[in-house]
Simulated scan of single mutants.
Amino acid sequence: MKILARHLTADLFNCQNNQLNDNDLILDMLKKILQDLEIKLISHTIETPVNDHHVFMLILNEGHITLQIYPQLKYVAMDIFLCQEDAEPDKLGQAVRSFFKPDKIKTTVLKRGDFGTAKELKPKVKTKVAPLRKIHNTGAKVIRILARRNNSQ
């Protein structure tokens, strides 16, 4: 089965990096990651359509990266498309995630150009939650269960 490209999308929630408005720093980080992974950058653009939203678009030799950054929400939407059968967009994605330090991540990986069966076309979706967030979520669930028991008695 021939795969034409690999496509990773990720939602980065509650990013702990306080420099989400520093476009120059973010662009430098992206350029360094691309250089480290030996991925050629052809061009880039940064737009700020509204004050609380920044858009990064990087055109690569074989693919692209886009970031939609909402600093007030501490949210980043990431899209990485690499046009190689053996591409590893998750390496690039992991480096970007390390910079933003999100509490929760939801990723989807697609094999683009996969002309297999419909069952094989289903994307893989992974959700990761930072350890402290897991503890908080578990504690909140326990409190809700105990509150329901007390209310029903």
Rank of each mutant, 00 (worst) to 15 (best):
T117S: 14
M78W: 09
F13K: 14
K141A: 08
L8E: 05
L132E: 15
A147Y: 10
K2G: 04
K141C: 02
V129L: 08
L8G: 03
T66E: 12
M57N: 13
M1W: 04
V96P: 00
N151F: 10
K119A: 12
I105P: 00
E62H: 11
L92V: 14
C15A: 08
K74M: 06
I80E: 02
F115G: 00
N18K: 12
L4T: 05
T9H: 03
T138F: 14
E38L: 10
A118F: 09
L4E: 15
R6W: 05
I59F: 04
A147L: 05
K124F: 02
T66H: 12
L132I: 08
L92N: 01
D79H: 04
L58A: 03
L121W: 06
L12F: 08
F100L: 00
L30H: 03
L58S: 08
G93A: 13
N17E: 11
Q68T: 05
N14D: 07
R133T: 14
V50G: 04
L20A: 11
F81M: 15
A140T: 06
H44T: 09
L60F: 03
D103E: 15
D36T: 09
E38A: 06
N23Q: 15
D28N: 10
A118D: 13
L8R: 06
T117F: 08
L67C: 08
